[in-house]
Every structure is written in C-alpha cells, then in structure tokens.
Design a protein around this nucleic acid. Structure first.
Lengths: 219, 219
DNA sequence: CTAAATGTTTAGGTGTGACTAAATTAAAGC
DNA sequence: GCTTTAATTTAGTCACACCTAAACATTTAG
C-alpha cells in the first residue's frame, strides 16, 4: 500500500473515533486531507476493491477489519516515532508531529517492533495518545474526559490533546498547560463557554474551542 | 524533490565515483535503477531543468554542484540510518540496507543533524563507507585498497564492501570476513585470480570477483 | 570509409492520484 | 409532497513516472 492510501485509512479511522454514525462521508474525509470530494470518491472505490473499506454510494465509507488493522499499524508507527523524536532526539513537543507523518509510512514490521523495544514499549505518545501494540490492540483504561466536559471544582491531569497542530501546542505551552500538568476547573462562563482553571500555580482562562481539544485524566 | 528523483541523483553519484569519464550514460543509470533507458532520458531532462544535472544528448548526465550536494545529503542520511539500525536497533549487517533505502528519503535537516549527534557523529557506516558531514564533506583519509589489488604477504583490516547485497554480506560472514577482521594475503592464483588469505585464524580462498568487492585498510 | 551493431531519443500509451465542471442524488424547508 | 439547497458522483483533464516500439545517432569492424 502507498502513502496516499495509508493517509486515507488513517483519516477515516480518526474520523470514525469522533463520529457516532457508522459511515464517514466523502466531504469530511476531503476536508481532513485537504482534498476535493471528487478525489475522495475515486479513492474510496479503489480502497473498496482492495477490501480495505466498505463503500456505499452517497453514504461514504467504513473501514473493514483489514482496513482497521492497517490504520492501527500506521498510527502505531506514527506514535512510536513521535516518542523516539522526543525522548531520544530531544525534539520539542510541537515539532514531532510533522516528521512522524513521514516516518509512519516506512514499511518494515521488524523495524517497528524493534523500535518499540528500543523505546521500552511506551504506552502513550508525547501528546497523550495510546500506542497500539504489535497486534493493533489499544489498552487505554484511563478515566479521561475533555476539559470542555468537566464540571466546576473537578480536577485532574492533562494527558493529551485532540489537535496536534504546532500553533495549538505552542499556545498551550505558553499558558502553562502541558502534559502531566495538574489542573482544577474554577469556573465555567455561561455566555461563551470559556473555562477558568488553575494550571499548576497560575490561574488561566481558556476558550470553549480550546477546551474541546484538551484531554484530562480525572482524579 | 521526490523519492524517484533522489534515487536518480544517488545512482549518478555512485556511478561517477567508479567511472573515469565525466558524463554517465543513460543505460548504466537505467541498469542501476532497474529501469528502461527511455525513462532515464526523460528524467534527466527534468533534472536538467531543476539544475541538478548537466545533460548532453547521446552523452549522458553529470551532476551539477547543486546535484552533488543533494546526492551527498541522501547518502549521509542513508549511512546514518544504517548506523542507527545496527547500533541501536541491533539489526544484522545485511539487513540494514533495504530499510535505509526508505529512511534516506525522509525530509528534515533538523532530524538528520540530531540523528548524527545521537549516534555520536559516526564517521563510517556499517559497510565501511564514510559518512558525509552536514556540509556534504567526506573525510576519508584511510589508506585503503581493494582486496583484489593487494599483493602476496600484504596484510590489513577489512573496512568495507562495494556490494551491499544481502547475499554477498551473508557469504562474507559465513567465511569469517567481517568488518574489522584482520587479514593477510597468502597467495594469488594466476589461473583464475582467486586469492588465498588468512582471516583471523582461518585460511580461506576467495574468488577474484568477490575480492573486487572487498575494501581493505593496508597496514 | 562505409555498413552493421549498439546505444539513445522520440512518440505514443498506461496507471495513479489529483483537479474542475456538470450531472445526479439526497436532505431540508415550506 | 414538492421544491430548493447541499452533498456526491461522473466525466473529462492534467502531471508524473514509468513503459514499448520505432526513429535516429554514434561507435565499431571489416
């Protein structure tokens, strides 16, 4: 399988996680991959032939078992390389994603498994996302919630983000919300949904939109 | 630049090293890359437009300064990744080449330089080839020779190969000729050019063809 | 020094993955 | 339930990197 098709599988996988409907529609895939819906339709047909997705006209696509395994394998590689870049090469939190986008397409099961061992089988990547094991199994039994869904006086630890863009990560670092940071929700503003919280020592206010992209492990 | 074009530059570079003529002809490039001469001609024109090679009809191509730098950068990445695979992930000597062929195309100067530091700036790769520094400069001032060109009673240390194929490397390991192995030429057979030598304790005989692919640092 | 053999280029074609514009289908509003 | 709007697909192009077959240049041999 090539880079392009792998990116489609990855996109469908990640959209499926958030969506509650079984099939993912053409335009959301197109949006995620910065492509036109017409191009997506074509590709979905090709992936259907390869039995990687189930495709229904005007409904969209759904990953087959084979497609899910392929997607999980790419995600596994992506996250392992992120750990490598951060822990071994000392890249910063917000720099690893882009390079991992390239490294995730390297084909060698042996390489992936040896890298996993070399990194001492990490269970989470630098953004707090769980790393699938060599069988594609994710074990993430942590009690997590989006910051936006927490109630006043609830507290927890920052364990991940849903948006790995450099701008967002830089912003978080700026306001002292980094991986492992303990936080407590002080107040939620009804009028715009923004949240006031304590991060470490400091009191910060965060927009509803940002809060929807921050994952917290509840105490 | 893409993977395909990078492979052309690499091929031209490596053919230039062996060849004494300035321009590398179409068919030798085609042979090296397992492609047809017609495809090579087309690509050389594209590389010419990008000022990566100088191309002369019916003569072939020659790397420009820009093209040489690009080729050296790919070679640098290839060799650094080989060191990583061998030293850190404990791959075997003959397994690293294929994976490095993929890794060498990852685009990130920062990554390459950090990898270089992480590996403690190695000067040679697992096959004994020198690694260009970040400016594309190769410093290889060792007194080396091909095994096939050594005289009787000369001795030295095995420091590299000219053929990185898995079959050849496995064969060398089998007969105890590995990197760093001390050898001494005992005899050269006039009738077929084969060489008898001591490798460590053992006495082995090696064909002329194999000897042409083994690099020895002379004592 | 010419003719044959060899190597190289040109011309035309293929598969892949993208695009735009037009046609079709599905969903939403009245 | 029909009509308007939005989403999706189809049809027709394009760029890219490869191919084959035919035309053309260069080298080699007699």
């Amino acid at each position: 399988m090539n880079t392009s098709q792998e990116n489609y599988l990855k996109a469908i996988y990640s959209l499926s996680e958030k969506s509650d409907s079984e099939f993912i529609n053409t335009s959301s895939i197109a949006h995620k991959l910065n492509m036109k819906p017409a191009s997506v339709t074509e590709m979905l047909k090709k992936l259907e032939v390869k039995k990687l997705v189930e495709y229904k006209k005007y409904k969209g696509a759904k990953l087959s078992e084979k497609g899910s395994q392929a997607a999980l394998n790419i995600i596994r590689k992506h996250r392992l390389w992120e750990v490598f870049l951060l822990k071994k090469l000392h890249f910063k939190w917000d720099e690893v994603h882009e390079i991992a986008e390239q490294l995730e397409h390297i084909q060698s099961k042996e390489l992936t498994d040896r890298l996993d061992d070399f990194l001492e089988n990490p269970r989470f990547d630098p953004h707090g996302d769980p790393i699938p094991d060599k069988h594609g199994i994710i074990t993430d039994n942590r009690n997590t919630s989006l910051l936006s869904e927490m109630g006043v006086k609830q507290s927890g630890t920052m364990t991940g983000v849903q948006d790995s863009s450099s701008i967002f990560l830089k912003y978080l670092e700026r306001i002292n919300i980094t991986l492992g940071q303990k936080i407590e929700v002080l107040d939620k503003m009804d009028f715009d949904g923004s949240i006031i919280l304590v991060a470490g020592e400091k009191e910060v206010s965060i927009s509803a939109q940002a809060a929807q992209n921050i994952i917290i492990r509840i105490n």
